[in-house]
Design a protein around this nucleic acid. Structure first.
Lengths: 217, 217
DNA sequence: TTTTTATCGATATTATTTTATCGATTTATG
DNA sequence: CATAAATCGATAAAATAATATCGATAAAAA
């Protein structure tokens, strides 16, 4: 899907990175695919295949991968180094929670400001991020050449706001609303869909409970 | 993975449901796999295959599926009818945002209360949900036989809290912290991992921009 | 120094998921 | 009432992803 790299691989990359940070903290210099696989509940094969797509340096037989080099390579692969500016649109509860989320910086994402239509929040600061009126959105996007928008408006405004964002020049939308939004093919969309996550969790739970019931009979 | 039904299928189910609600609102009685596929950017084949796993009633040739019946079947399949109680642990910004999120009820999830260690929030109400001290967590879980926990504590406490929850009898953890948590095999975990979502979004964006650059040369 | 061991990276195999095909069937049309 | 059109559901084919295998090689042990 992305050149050669699969979506699943991209999903796993941050997990490797997280584990590697921990290992570095413990002073580990090398780590094998077997160890990483065990720590993350994966197979060594998939770890090796995934890492082969991000890394520059080869792993060494008998010892594995150099932790520091691998961290550099994955960070680079994921673009954590060249910080990306983003706007956040819709500063209700969830929007403010995300505005205040300090973790984004670790992933190379820099929210430059929040935007909202309500005078109740406009002008306020959340964790140092100013909330501006929606009217200034298009100007900010164009002037600062911002490519990424985080969408946290009420779902009934999601499509209209998405349209406006695309018109203003946004190229990637991180959609936290439950609404399904339609965008042109040359715009990236990522849906953070609670319903679908919950569906999977419920299914897992049901399966687990069913298995237990079968055993207890 | 879950009996016969794939994880991807579970992910798509709530999307079908959402679309079906819209169609019902418009007064549509029947809908074909072709229409659903178009609305959701899928293929008719996958729609038919997915629906075949959730539905009881057969679709009719020439007209498609009865919207109302299909809604019932999917709701039932996903367990939206028999509401599931849950606790939310960690009432910081994100936790409170989720506590106040009214959409969960639509998915059959009922958060009975929030839990936190801080006196600043204990006793407060967020959208009608009371925040209780963590000390009362185990008692509540056992007394009310609660199976699902939403985990929104600071990441450094994630593992310890997960352990406590499992000990108290929780069977499914919806993990909103960036931490990777380890649990016994008979516990369901669903990670709402911002980093991995962002990694995928960035990758999509990069691919799109690259494609454009190639064209413009 | 030789042998053993652990691991990589490439490739082959297997499993899973998606897509395409096609006969059967229902509704609408001439 | 016969024919055409649209769709389902089952199944076959293709694409994708995960896993297993294995020769090469570097480090450690004998």
């Amino acid at each position: 899907m992305f050149g050669e790299v699969s979506l699943q691989t991209f999903h796993r990359m941050p997990q490797y990175l997280k584990t590697l940070y921990e290992l570095r903290k413990e002073g580990r210099e090398y780590v094998s695919s077997v160890t990483l696989a065990e720590m993350l509940n994966l197979t060594p094969s998939i770890v090796k295949k995934d890492l082969s797509q991000a890394k520059v340096q080869d792993g060494k037989p008998k010892v594995g991968y150099a932790v520091n080099d691998l961290i550099d390579d994955i960070e680079n692969f994921l673009g954590y180094n060249n910080a990306k500016d983003a706007v956040l649109v819709g500063c209700g509860k969830l929007g403010q929670a995300l505005l205040g989320y300090t973790g984004f910086a670790d992933y190379g994402l820099n929210i430059i400001a929040g935007f909202d239509i309500s005078d109740d929040v406009i002008g306020r600061k959340v964790q140092g991020k100013l909330i501006l009126p929606t009217g200034k959105l298009e100007g900010a996007i164009k002037k600062l050449d911002i490519k990424i928008a985080i969408l946290t408006v009420p779902q009934e405004h999601a499509q209209a706001m998405a349209d406006a964002l695309v018109k203003a020049g946004i190229r990637a939308i991180w959609n936290f609303t439950p609404a399904h939004i339609s965008v042109p093919a040359n715009i990236a969309v990522r849906n953070e869909n609670m319903a679908s996550s919950l569906a999977v969790l419920s299914a897992q739970l049901r399966e687990i409970l069913k298995k237990e019931n079968n055993l207890n009979q």
